[in-house]
């Protein structure tokens, strides 16, 4: 079976700021930092993959490459068989993204007005958008917050809204960067359950979720990929790898209290 997400030999580096001395001595040179070095990752349909790694491991860069907002230096990224570098707009039709940037809405509009605006960019008709927003409001318990100005929403509500936006066009593939950050334990639990049980379990969507939280991965994901040193150090079923990941890399569980509360 063809993978839904297919990254093959992906390299990515970024330019780094230089000191005045470096600029003076080598005005035309560029200082680069290698973030990903030959990453290969395949994810099958109906999988919830937990992408873990320490800070700066390249998780967000990987999600940006998959969302076609960044292009690789080398290698190929394919989503549902479409080359993300060559056909980003086609890829975006079946892709929902929750970015790590909570500012990515229009602050003077209400949450509902924001969702209606983005729905038009996802090619939804006004009628379909309203219906979809009502359904998502129920699903994510957006309730009265939907008619509040975005600037008055708390961080947790903003992340809930970001998840609602990612689901507006009912995409086949979801990329989530710390999607429950800032949510209260109940909302975070509900959001994770929605993703794992309904979207992946029932609707067979494919989800990549970048997180530091190993307990979330252990509880909700089928497989995990560990990024280390710009490479995928491990990839496979969670139950086979979770102990190795914990012991080998000593990744800290940053939301232990939260997880314990929800359980």
């Amino acid at each position: 079976m063809k993978p839904v997400i297919d990254m093959e030999g992906v390299y990515k580096s970024f330019t780094q700021p230089r000191t005045l001395g470096e600029i003076f001595l080598h005005p035309m040179a560029r200082k680069r930092i290698q973030v990903l070095s030959g990453v290969t990752l395949r994810v099958q349909q109906g999988t919830l993959l937990g992408l873990v790694g320490s800070n700066g491991a390249g998780k967000t860069t990987m999600l940006r490459l998959l969302s076609a907002t960044v292009t690789p230096d080398e290698g190929v990224v394919k989503i549902l068989g479409q080359d993300a570098t060559r056909r980003p707009n086609t890829v975006h039709k079946n892709l929902g993204v929750v970015l790590d940037d909570e500012r990515s809405f229009f602050w003077r509009l209400t949450a509902r007005q924001n969702l209606l605006f983005f729905a038009s960019l996802y090619n939804l008709s006004n009628k379909a958008a309203k219906k979809r927003i009502d359904a998502l409001a129920q699903l994510l318990d957006l309730g009265p917050e939907l008619d509040k100005a975005f600037r008055n929403l708390s961080t947790g509500w903003r992340h809930r809204l970001a998840l609602a936006r990612a689901l507006l066009h009912d995409p086949q593939v979801l990329l989530l960067d710390e999607p429950t950050r800032g949510m209260d334990p109940k909302a975070a639990h509900k959001a994770r359950a929605l993703v794992a049980q309904r979207l992946v379990g029932e609707q067979k969507k494919t989800v990549v979720m970048a997180t530091h939280d190993l307990r979330t991965v252990q509880r909700w994901c089928q497989s995990l990929a560990l990024l280390d040193g710009g490479k995928i150090a491990m990839q496979g079923p969670v139950h086979e790898l979770i102990e190795q990941v914990e012991s080998r890399f000593g990744l800290s569980d940053t939301s232990q209290d939260e997880t314990e509360t929800e359980e």
Partner: peptide, 18 residues
């Protein structure tokens, strides 16, 4: 500056249209 550019570009609407 507002942080909306990436969210806009991540939609199927081509950047030139945006």
């Amino acid at each position: 500056v507002l942080g909306t550019l990436e969210a806009l570009i991540a939609t199927p609407t081509p950047p030139w249209q945006i």
